[in-house]
Amino acid sequence: MKTTKRRQTRFRLRYDKTTGLLLISPWLIGFVLFKLLPILASFGLSLTDFHMLKPEETSFIGLANYVRLFQDEAIGYLIAFTLNSAIRTVPLQLAASIFLAALLSNPRLKAPTMTRTLFFVPSIIPGVAIAFMWYGFMDPATGWLNRFILPFFGLAGFNDMYSDAAAAFLYSISSLWAIGPGMLIMLGAMQSISSEINEAARVDGAGPLVRFFRITLPMVTPAIFFTLIINLIAVFGGVILLDRGNTFRGGGVPFDRYITYWMFEQWDLGYAAGLAWFFFVIVMIVIIALFSSSRRWVYFPDRES
């Protein structure tokens, strides 16, 4: 009796904060080295006129980079573009992943695993392959779009691959090829809804549409929230779960490209750091706004009890 008690106290000592800290220390060190310090260093750099090729001539210039940023005409355009691409892709991706998840979680589906996998395939292939395929597919002379699909619907062929409209269309349509993770997570959430709830609603006379909008959708709001975050981060050029590299010409989102331009073509790291910090603050504001709004529309089962 006495020995077990002693043993138990010794065992309890093991589950302590020191061991915990020790175990998570690789991440903690990585966090400090690769995230925290660089973010702070970026802020420090943004207060200077640091130049890649002549770091020794650096001087402190205060908020001058930020003043310059607010006078930079490109910024307004970049924000508008980012907003525009968010509007063009995120709702489309959300709707498509909810719709597909609803289809693929239906018990009537034959060969469910294979079908789901095939719908998932476009989300794991490299951006390079996606760019080649879509550019080829839409190629005015040899692509299938002009040769078979548009004529089939009696539409005129489309000729200017490199127009803004074509780029916008390509961007929206190819964003549908990135919905895999969100779709699977929603599928998981839909499958975990207990069939009793649905059955009860069915007995009460709720049709499939009513059940979908009144039961399924509210219960998968956590998955919708997660998908929303993934897709938004992708609009800002970030990566969650699956990266495909830069898909189309030039690569990356315009904000990223603008920062890259100041970094690698002008070597003006001070201004590039200012831009990066500005961008960072915007992203963080959007994410904090989303997380605080989530209390109102995301269903958390834990919070109810």
Partner: peptide
Amino acid sequence: LLIATILIPEKVTLIPTYF
């Protein structure tokens, strides 16, 4: 904090690390 690091844009850490 771990979850938050997933959401940090790459560029803000890139400049000093690249240098």
